[in-house]
Simulated assay, not measured.
Amino acid sequence: MISKKIESALNEQIALEAYASFLYLAMASWCNREGLDGCASFMHRQSDEERAHMLRIYTYLAETDGFALTPAIAQPPHEYDSVQAMFEKVYAHEQKVTQSINDLLSLSYAENDHSTLNFLQWYVEEQREEEALMRNILNKIRLIGSGGQSLYYIDKEVDKLNKTAIAQESTEEEN
């Protein structure tokens, strides 16, 4: 059985993951409008991934006799000054999620909840990977620069990263 404090904190995490899913979906729409098909595909996959993170917590709460709440989601921003500004927003959001996971770990330690500590380890690794990926994309954007031709190359680089991630996921599913 899970404590009410942990249940409440995990429900807050559900809301954060749900918001991320909608944020990335809104970003995908912006990318589509801007002709950044590779970035749009990347953001669609990120949105799906965030929803899966949310559902993972739903399942965990059910397994531990907790109750998952379906959160109300605030309208995410849907306009960006540039692809770089958009990815800076993504990186900042991933950092916020990492901090939230760290806070959940601290609470789990304080509550002596070893099951939740174990459950959250997956998120610790996932957030390290997410932050590294977004930092890598931002570094590529800074290297490529801005402008029409640069946007073309940025879109191709993000698309390549997305296709690599999809291929890795397929390989992991087969094994």
Rank of each mutant, 00 (worst) to 15 (best):
P76H: 09
E17G: 02
H44A: 09
F67V: 13
G35A: 04
N139T: 14
A165N: 10
S108L: 03
V90P: 00
R56W: 01
N139K: 14
L120V: 03
E50W: 08
L25N: 08
I57P: 00
L10H: 00
W122M: 05
H114E: 12
Y109S: 11
Y60H: 15
K156E: 05
L107R: 04
A165H: 10
N102R: 13
L117D: 05
A26F: 10
L105C: 08
S3D: 10
G145C: 03
G147Y: 04
G148W: 00
H44K: 15
L133S: 12
N162E: 14
A132R: 12
K140R: 15
I14W: 03
P77Q: 09
I137G: 01
L105F: 13
K140S: 13
A68G: 11
V97D: 00
K140N: 11
S100A: 14
T164A: 11
S100G: 09
S41M: 07
P71E: 02
Q95D: 07
W122P: 01
R128F: 07
G66Y: 07
F87H: 08
I57M: 03
I144V: 11
S170I: 10
H78C: 08
Q84P: 01
M54F: 07
E79H: 10
Q121N: 14
D48F: 08
I154H: 00
N32I: 11
L16A: 15
K96M: 13
R142C: 02
Y60A: 11
V124N: 02
L36M: 14
A165P: 04
T164C: 02
S82I: 04
E94I: 06
S150L: 01
S47P: 01
M27H: 06
L117F: 05
S47N: 05
S150C: 10
I144F: 04
D37S: 14
S170A: 15
S29Q: 13
F119V: 07
H78S: 12
T164I: 10
E174T: 11
D37K: 13
L23Y: 11
E172G: 00
N102H: 15
L36D: 02
H93D: 09
C39R: 00
T98V: 10
E88V: 02
S29T: 15
V90M: 03
A18F: 14
H93I: 01
A52H: 00
R142Y: 12
T98Q: 06
E50K: 10
Y19E: 01
L120H: 01
E12H: 14
R56G: 01
G145H: 04
M86H: 03
Y19D: 03
N11A: 05
E34S: 09
M1R: 13
W122I: 06
L143I: 14
G148A: 07
A20P: 03
F87T: 02
